[in-house]
Each structure stands twice: as C-alpha cells, then as structure tokens.
Design a protein around this nucleic acid. Structure first.
Length: 290
DNA sequence: GACCAGGATTGCT
DNA sequence: AGCAATCATGGT
C-alpha cells in the first residue's frame, strides 16, 4: 500500500463532497471516516482511497494506492476528479455580487467533482434521462451490478465493448425502456467500434464536442452538457432544459411557475464564465439533505 | 389516478 | 421549424 499526502487551497469542504457523492448508491462513501474509495480504470481495476484529514479552511487528504503511481497517472487523475488544483476562492468571489450569493455562502467550499470515468458518465447520463433520481439510480445500479465488476465494495462500469454486445432484451428485463436500451447499446457500439473516440474528443473546445455528441442517437443537448461538465470538468455549462435547474430557479426567485428559457438566459447571464458552478449549486439548493 | 420526473426521438402538420 | 406522442416506473 502506497500512501501520499495532498494539501489544496481553501476553501474546500470534502464533507459536502462526500455528501453529494453518497447520492449515488454505486459510490463507496463512508461519511464517518471521511473516506471515499474511487475506482481507477487502469490496465487492471484499482482502488484509490481518499480520506479527508483537514478542514474547509485548511484542506488536506490522505491518498492510499494499491500500486506504485508510475508517471503520476493516479495522482493526476485524482487531482482532476476532485478539482484539487482549482481556485474556489476566486469563483466564490465572482458569485458574491450575484443572486446566487446566499446559495454559495451556504454551500461554501463545494467543488465540481467529476464522475470517475468518461464512458460511465455517458451511460449514467443516458440512463438518467427524464427519470426521477430515485428510479434513475436504481436502474443504473441494476445495470452496473449485472454487467460491471466489483472489487472490495467498489463498482466498475462495464467496458464499452462489453455493453456493445448486449441484447436489448437483457436491458428491457431490468426495466429499461426499449429506446433507452437501444441508446445505451448503440452509443457503446460507436465507442467500441472506434467511430467515437472519447480521448480525442476531450482535446476539442466545448462547442465542437457538443456538436459531435449530439449527432449520436440517444444523446441530446442535456446529455452532452452533462458530459462536458462531469466527465471533462468544463466550467461554463448551464443545462437550461434541466428540470432540476428550472425548479431551483423557480424557488430562488419565488416564482409560481418555472421560468421560460428566455428568462433563464437573462438570469444566468451574470454567472458566466462559471456557469457549471452555478448549475451545481442550484442543484444542491433543492437536494434533500440531512 | 392523475401528473411529473436532472430528455430524446419520431412522426405529424 | 414547431408541436404532440411516446417511453417505464416511482414518488407525490
């Protein structure tokens, strides 16, 4: 077991990170020991264990790895996933002059934490389309439990090639709709057969990635924006068709209806170039928390 | 028992 | 181009 200590710039509230991660039952989170076990999709499945050892104003972490970290691949991955090199201070500063001031103060130190794998983000987003979160998590969990892999309590999504050869009926059995099953298998085929290269895609600017992803059957604007935000960590995305965002804005402005798309454009204008943070904090503002 | 969920596609006009 | 129907099921 290799151990490593990391400190990052404040503010950074890892307990809020764990709180959000625990919304997905596939994540291996232990709130009391302030630890999350992260799947690392290398040549073999590996687990990286991250434990908070500091506070919001003096954040530090203990990282435990199973193998030697050749080329810093694992540490670089964790830095990106948990945004350890971000500057939340500046971002908070930006929002103090906006209508999101109170929400940002309440959730101060919450970074945008990325999903643990680009392909899994795509699958999860497609499965989550249009469904309430409870059922969406159930479906995703069924999918990963049946076709993915487990190691020491940590779940790994199947590889694209493994999903690509599934039959639609195998997903229908676990209560996927016909079309959702086709989307999941179809997009996996695009990747497995080399027509969609996620590593190459990552090098392009937001608008080009959006354009390419939306061409695929089963990926619309919402899913593509979700990918840019949570697989790639792009900072200026605002999924205005998202029901959760619309409900959060309705609540924020005390409206008796959801805002129109034009109204949303107006509201969000002042939050650029950090719209992804605005989105995250708006989602957090309507999530049920203990 | 409606009606809505962290949407996208298809088939109408 | 724009609109309605469709999808599976759980929560309210």
């Amino acid at each position: 077991m290799r151990e490593l200590r990391v400190s990052v710039l404040p503010p950074y509230n890892f307990d809020l990170v764990l709180d959000r991660l625990s919304l997905d039952p596939l994540n291996s989170v232990d709130i009391s020991s302030r630890t999350v076990k992260v799947p690392f999709y290398g040549e073999e499945d590996e687990i990286l264990e991250v434990t908070a050892t500091g506070t919001t104003d003096d954040p530090s972490f203990l990282v435990q790895m199973e193998k030697e970290d050749r080329g810093n691949a694992r540490l670089d991955y964790l830095k990106k996933v948990f945004q350890w090199e971000g500057t939340l201070q500046e971002i908070h500063q930006h929002f103090l002059d906006t209508d999101l001031k109170d929400i940002f103060t309440e959730h101060s130190g919450t970074p945008v934490v990325l999903e643990f794998n680009p392909y899994s983000t795509l699958m999860k987003s497609i499965i989550h389309q249009q469904l309430n979160l409870a059922f969406a998590h159930t479906l995703t969990q069924r999918f990963v439990h049946k076709f993915g892999r487990e190691k020491d309590g940590v779940w790994f999504y199947p590889a694209p090639g493994e999903t690509a050869i599934l039959d639609v009926d195998e997903l229908r059995e676990m209560q996927f709709s016909q079309r959702k099953a086709e989307y999941v298998i179809g997009v996996s085929k695009e990747i497995a057969e080399g027509r969609l290269n996620l590593q190459e895609l990552e090098k392009k600017p937001d608008d080009e990635i959006l354009k390419e992803l939306v061409k695929l059957r089963g990926i619309g604007p919402w899913t593509a924006e979700n990918y840019l935000m949570f697989a790639l960590g792009r900072q200026n995305l605002f999924p205005k068709t998202d029901i959760g965002i619309q409900n959060a804005l309705k609540k924020l402005y005390g409206m008796d209806r959801k805002p129109t798309l034009a109204e949303i454009d107006e509201m969000s204008e002042a939050w650029s170039p950090y719209l992804s943070y605005a989105s995250l904090y708006l989602w957090r503002s309507i999530e049920n928390r203990k």
